[in-house]
Design a binder for these strands. Structure first.
Lengths: 138, 138
DNA sequence: GTTCCTGCAAAAGCTTTGCAGAAGA
DNA sequence: TCTTCTGCAAAGCTTTTGCAGGAAC
């Protein structure tokens, strides 16, 4: 399960991340939209409500949240980093037609690599590509 | 198993990919160096032997090989596409200390995603991150 | 002789950096 | 008050594009 908003804010305080209006807006967007947005998508979505918002601040905020382990960066396509606030184990599916990314549940602990016995593994990633049901119908 | 060089060249001919000197050099590099190089690494390695080689040609060649399904592009880190000529099922491990990428065997067919029943899945990717044994010793 | 490829220069796209003014604690 | 954040402009990187000359077939 996701941590509560309060826990999140406490964690931010502990890590000396100031809760500016812009940062709260980015965080709110990530919590309300589990669609693995790019920095650009976040910027475009928030720009209407916060006209002075700059892309620099979006990047700044996202990098701070990644460093604080609150969001995870997602690299499926080149030159397109997406951001994910879900903390439970899951894989990602990207539709090559519409570009949408959805989560799917997968047990990452069960993923064993016998070839990597002397390696220290800190991060496991799984992503699939293909066509989503919506695009298959067209 | 990897296909033989002859099979590769036949496949290139079938797909109307001309066997220029530069392209053969890039292909040779990929076959001899299963280290998942970036375009830049390939360029730097071949530049000595083929002084007139341009990065544009390296990119052009890699894109042609990807389109022909002869090499696979690998996106682990943002703004750093790597290229892989191994065709058998495998995952990738990237050392966050030295940056090296190594293969490990994994059964991708066994990776099932129950949440994606109505999805058409064309591509499965697994990558781990951590520290390799060499860097752990330092 | 066609068609496609090469390589230069320039451009495009995402992300980072420098810095002065503004806002959070 | 002190520290950090914002947002503009500019720069940094990887990758792509336009195009004239050259190579493959």
């Amino acid at each position: 399960m996701n941590s509560s908003i309060k826990d999140l804010l406490d964690e931010l305080k502990n890590k000396n991340i100031r809760l500016s209006h812009q940062r709260l807006k980015v965080l709110e967007y990530l919590i309300l939209n589990h669609c693995h947005p790019t920095a650009d998508q976040i910027y475009n979505a928030l720009h209407k409500d916060v006209p002075t918002l700059s892309k620099t601040t979006v990047y700044n905020t996202l990098n701070a949240l990644v460093k604080a382990n609150i969001v995870r960066p997602l690299n499926i396509e080149n030159a397109e980093t997406r951001y994910d606030i879900n903390t439970f184990d899951h894989g990602h599916f990207k539709c090559e037609s519409c570009g949408d990314v959805v989560d799917f549940s997968i047990n990452l602990d069960a993923l064993k690599a016998n070839d990597l016995n002397n390696y220290e593994i800190t991060d496991k990633n799984v992503y699939f590509k293909g066509i989503c049901p919506k695009c298959l119908q067209i």
